[in-house]
Amino acid sequence: MSKVILVFGQVRNSEPTRPTLECLSLAAGLGGDVHCILLGTGAKAAAAAAGHQGASQVWANEDASFDKWDLAAVANTVDAAVKSTGAALVLVPATTHGKELAGKLAARHSAALASEVIGVSADGDGFKAVRPVYSGKVRATVKLSGSPVFATVRPNVLDVAAADSSKTATVNDLAAGQGDSRIQLVSVETKGDTGAVDLSEARVVVAGGRGLKGPENFHLIDGLATAFNGAVGASRMVVDAGWKEHRYQVGQTGKVVTPELYVAVGISGAIQHLVGMQNSGCIVAINNNPEAPIFKVADYGVVADLFEFVPKLAEELKA
């Protein structure tokens, strides 16, 4: 019997999220028996996609209470599945929710937890993981001992294998675990810009920096992001100056993003920024200073006045 690899899946609009698919692809590639947990509204509908991605078993609970995050309840629910499946490896997307779930369960099991991994491989009876450390300046290969072991998987790094619609998963019911009355979700507010693509999951990020000269010019970044169908990001300086909120910040003390395409506009490329985006697939830098350090990590550099160039680029993309 091959080992069970349990993926904690996240559901949005009755589909597994992209980071969930990445986890499933990773699990399937390890040659284990892949199980997937899906909770909340649309969980069972999402099970089909999980099956196409290689899950043999889906553990689902469609209770709408799971749509609102309750760490204790989710942890207790998942914990039951970890135990019942005898999972050797539990993969969780390294999202805000995923990371706190994995940490909590790893502590409960006194188990190894590798955070924000960008690769996992089988290693005899156990597993090894590769993860960026020192703000991405170094990559560590770590050996995870014991069973089960946990890993959170950094979104947007791993490929998703082509879905195979001939593969299906058996859908099983998973009983909901007990919540913790000491912590109550009061509200979930959706920001005005939900329509816009989320920064940490975006395929394309267009980020603006000091070169924009003022918040009144940030619409250039918004416009370019729309033209790329991408998300908006910002440098630390932009956030510290109050032009954009912290959730837009890329880099140290902001988000680490790894989109397929990162467009840095008017960002000089301080190390604090580079650590947040240097592992992006393709990097475009637009800056009027040919000596700006951002060009060192850029695949394509454009030395130009951004106020002139950015509208032209947006226009060209729409053409």
Binding site: K137, A140, G146
Partner: peptide, 22 residues
């Protein structure tokens, strides 16, 4: 006994291929 994650190896991430100016 709780050190269940052992670093086996550290390496530098692959260098980005040199870019070019458009």
């Amino acid at each position: 006994s709780l050190r269940k994650v052992q670093v086996e190896k550290l390496e530098y991430p692959p260098a980005r291929p040199p870019g070019r100016m458009v």
